[in-house]
Amino acid sequence: MSLPGSARRREIRLAYLLLSPALLLLLTVLAYPIGWELWTSLTDLSPLSDGPQAFVGFENYRRFLGDAEFWRAAAVTVVYAAVTSVAKLALGLGFALLLARPFRGRALVFLAIFLPWAYPAGVSVIGWYWTLNPPTRTAYAPFMGHLKYVVDGAFGGGAWAFVSVILFNIWRGSSFIGVLLLAGINAIPPELFECALLESKSAWRRFHLVTVPLLKPFLALGVFLSLTSAFADLANVWLLTAGRIVFPVIGTHAYWLVIKAGQYGPASALSLTLVPFLLVVLLVLFRLFDPWEENPA
């Protein structure tokens, strides 16, 4: 192995120089907070207690094991993540396939599909909330009220609100994933499709054997980004509904612990429980992207 030449060394130095603002920014904004959260999750910090903050080790985590509320939140989280991800992927893929081939008025349909994501979420969430939970005695309130009554009756109070969160999250996420997958489809060389067209007459087999494998990295990317944003959406809803969330997921439960109970320690521990799972999804994502990145030829 030879030493890198001086030009290469200069290039590497320039690279670090250009990289530094991004790293600095991420470190400033994220390094301390994540450290704080890790540390806090090991303590009993609370603004409500007078005593000094005490180190409690993994007590906060251990407590979850026997905490029915935690398991409930975990279960709801799994359901929430699974339902929204699958629905977003299915709808998004549908949108992308609809838009993949030219037809009259495609630009308009494309804009319509792009809109849910492009429209500020803080705004459209109100639209959804209004639609599903009419606040005043408007003309359609009785109908929606009835629907809410039925759903809440079947699944318990707050179910309807939770359903509206899910619907909103799917609505917005499928738009993002649809556009992402459309870009992915465009990125697949058309020869591959033509090849597939010759190989197999059945559209379903083509889709299954060619489109899906080629889109896999982008599907994974979409799922990952939608997973991480799913919880941010929840926070929006939490604020909008002033905490009337009866079906807590991990994220909102942690938020609730902080706002209502001032239990910083358990709340931190709680929100960190998601990290390992997201990391696993991320590793899968990297694996899917690697072959694509490391064989540029």
Partner: peptide, 14 residues
């Protein structure tokens, strides 16, 4: 990987 950091409580240390 910055995206795996849970946003929920980030505002406190932030």
């Amino acid at each position: 990987a910055a995206y795996v950091i849970p946003q929920t409580l980030l505002f406190i240390p932030l």
